[in-house]
Computed example of a mutant assay.
Amino acid sequence: MTVTEFPPLLSEEDLQKYKVPLRWRDRCAAHFALYHLCLKRQSADTSVDCKHDKHAWEECENLDLIRRKQELKEVKEQRRSELQ
């Protein structure tokens, strides 16, 4: 599965419900929550495989990093053009 767009943002109640740490409360928090729910199921039933959920979360984080780098680049270019 290729992540092409970000999942909808979780509400504050959902973030607390799924116990998403502050560090991971970003655009990919929904994938993080699904992955950790899977890990809980896996601890009870070893036949559950969470590789797909982990991959989706990591891919979303990578996509978000690329997006943030692009935004930073655009802001820097805009500031350079304003200074000239």
Rank of each mutant, 00 (worst) to 15 (best):
E74I: 04
R67Q: 07
E71P: 09
Q78G: 13
I66V: 04
R79F: 12
C60R: 05
I66D: 00
D26W: 01
C38Y: 12
L15T: 02
W24I: 10
K69L: 07
E71V: 09
C38N: 08
C28T: 05
K69Q: 08
E77Q: 14
R25A: 04
T4L: 11
R68P: 03
K54T: 00
K54F: 02
V48F: 00
A56Q: 11
E61F: 00
A29H: 02
R25Q: 03
P8A: 10
A33M: 02
R68D: 10
D49S: 10
H31M: 09
E71K: 14
S11C: 03
D49G: 03
E74H: 03
E71F: 05
E74Q: 11
L65E: 09
K69G: 06
R79A: 15
L72K: 14
R41S: 11
H55R: 09
R79H: 12
A33E: 01
C50H: 00
K51C: 10
C38E: 06
C60Y: 03
C28D: 05
A44S: 09
M1K: 13
R27W: 14
L22Q: 11
P21F: 00
R79C: 10
E12Y: 03
K73D: 10
D53G: 06
T4G: 06
R41G: 02
E77I: 03
A44N: 04
L34C: 06
E5C: 01
L34M: 13
Q42Y: 10
K73G: 03
T46V: 08
L34H: 08
C60Q: 08
K19M: 07
H55C: 11
T4E: 11
I66N: 01
K40R: 13
S81R: 15
V3R: 02
N62M: 13
H55L: 12
W57T: 04
D53R: 08
R67M: 01
E61I: 04
Q84D: 10
L63R: 11
R80D: 14
C38F: 05
F32P: 12
S43I: 01
L72Q: 14
